[in-house]
C-alpha cells in the first residue's frame, strides 16, 4: 500500500486508544461488520409452526460472513502483540476470508498475502487484488488442503516476515461467532431459536455460533451441513471425512450432520433467486436444503411443538464466476 493511502485511512479514526498508533481502521468499516438482518424464508418453505430464518451475512463489509472472524483474528493478533507494523498478514483461503483480510488490511494499513487454489472464482481473485493484496496460487487439483500445505511451507521458510492468523486453528475464529453471531440470533429470534445449521469450511461458524447459542439454552441443537461427496462444487465447504480436519473443529460437538449434494444446493440457489429474490452463494443453497430437510422431519415427527430453524447465507453471487 502506498503511503498516501495509509495516511488517508489513518485519518478516519482509531479503533481503541490502547492499540499501537499505526493501527487505524475506518469507523464506518467496522460498523459494517456484524448486526446483519435475519430473514424469514416465506415462499420456498411455509409451515404454521416451523419457521426457517437465515442471517444475511453478505451484508457484512467485504461481502461475507468471514469479515467477523477475520477482524477478530486480526484484533486478537494486535492485542497479543503478534501482529506488528512490519508484518504481512498471511493465510490460506479459498476466497471469502481472503477478501476479508484484504479489505481489513487495506483499512488498517497492513499488507496482505494469501495462498489460494488456482480454481477459485475469478471474481474473488479480482476483488482481492482490487485491495492490493498479493495472491500466491496453489494447485487447483489439491483444493483448499493444497493451499493450507503451501501456506505452511512458505511460512516455515520465512516465519518472521508474516503474521499468520491460521484461520483453521485460531480460537479467535470461532470466538467471533460466539460473541457476535450467536448473540444476534438469540436476540433477533427473542430466544425462540431451536436449531442452528451451518456448512463448514474452518467450522468456525458452526462451532462458535453453536456454542454461543447453547450458552443461552443448552437444548438448542447445532447441526453441521456437509457436501455428500469428497468431489463437490460447494465453494467454501469441506467434506471433513476426506479433508485436512481444522484444528478448531471438534467432531463430537454437532448434535447431528446433514449431507447435501452439490446439484441440490445449486438448484436451491436458483430457487432462492426466483422465489425469494435473494442472489446468494452455493453454501447458502446447501444450508437451506439442510434446513428444509430438517423442517420436513420435524413436520412428520409426532412432536407438535414449534421450531425456529436458523442458518446463515454466508455470501452473495457477487463473488462467483458468471457462468456458474
Amino acid at each position: 500500500m502506498v503511503a498516501s493511502q495509509k495516511e488517508k485511512y489513518s485519518m478516519t479514526g482509531v479503533l481503541k486508544p490502547n492499540y499501537p498508533p499505526y493501527v487505524c481502521l475506518s469507523k464506518d468499516s467496522i460498523k459494517q461488520i456484524g448486526n446483519t438482518p435475519l430473514l424469514e424464508i416465506r415462499n420456498i418453505y411455509q409451515h404454521p409452526k416451523i419457521k426457517i430464518l437465515a442471517k444475511a451475512e453478505w451484508t457484512n463489509a467485504g461481502g461475507s460472513i468471514k469479515a467477523r472472524p477475520a477482524l477478530n483474528m486480526i484484533l486478537n493478533g494486535l492485542e497479543k502483540g503478534t501482529l506488528k507494523k512490519d508484518k504481512i498478514i498471511f493465510d490460506s483461503t479459498s476466497g471469502n476470508t481472503g477478501i476479508a483480510y484484504a479489505f481489513i488490511g487495506a483499512a488498517m494499513g497492513f499488507n496482505v498475502t494469501l495462498v489460494m487454489p488456482e480454481n477459485v472464482s475469478k471474481r474473488r481473485k479480482e476483488i482481492i487484488t482490487d485491495y492490493h493484496a498479493e495472491i500466491i496460487y496453489s494447485s487447483a487439483l489439491e483444493g483448499s488442503d493444497g493451499a493450507m500445505r503451501l501456506a505452511e511451507k512458505i511460512l516455515n521458510e520465512n516465519p518472521e516476515k508474516y503474521f499468520f492468523p491460521d484461520q483453521y486453528g485460531n480460537e479467535a475464529n470461532w470466538q467471533a461467532h460466539y460473541e457476535t453471531t450467536a448473540k444476534e440470533i438469540y436476540q433477533q429470534t427473542k430466544g425462540m431459536v431451536t436449531h442452528f445449521l451451518a456448512g463448514m469450511g474452518t467450522s468456525g461458524t458452526l462451532m462458535g455460533t453453536g456454542k454461543g447459542l447453547k450458552r443461552y439454552d443448552e437444548k438448542i441443537k447445532a447441526i453441521s451441513v456437509q457436501p455428500d461427496a469428497s468431489l463437490h462444487g460447494l465453494e467454501g465447504m469441506k467434506h471433513m471425512a476426506s479433508s485436512i480436519v481444522p484444528t478448531i473443529y471438534d467432531e463430537s460437538f454437532p448434535d447431528r450432520q446433514i449431507d447435501i449434494s452439490t446439484d441440490d444446493a445449486y438448484d436451491m440457489v436458483d430457487l432462492l433467486r426466483e422465489e425469494e429474490g435473494l442472489k446468494v452463494g452455493y453454501s447458502s443453497g446447501a444450508n437451506l436444503c439442510a434446513a428444509i430437510k430438517l423442517a420436513k422431519e420435524l413436520e412428520s415427527s409426532d412432536s407438535d411443538s414449534e421450531a425456529t430453524i436458523v442458518t446463515v447465507f454466508a455470501d452473495s453471487t457477487a463473488c462467483y464466476n458468471e457462468y456458474l
Binding site: S94, N119, S144, K238
Partner: peptide, 11 residues
C-alpha cells in the same frame, strides 16, 4: 487433461 471441481472446500 485436468479434471477440476469448481472448488474443493475451505474458506
Amino acid at each position: 487433461v485436468s479434471i477440476i471441481p469448481a472448488i474443493a472446500g475451505g474458506k
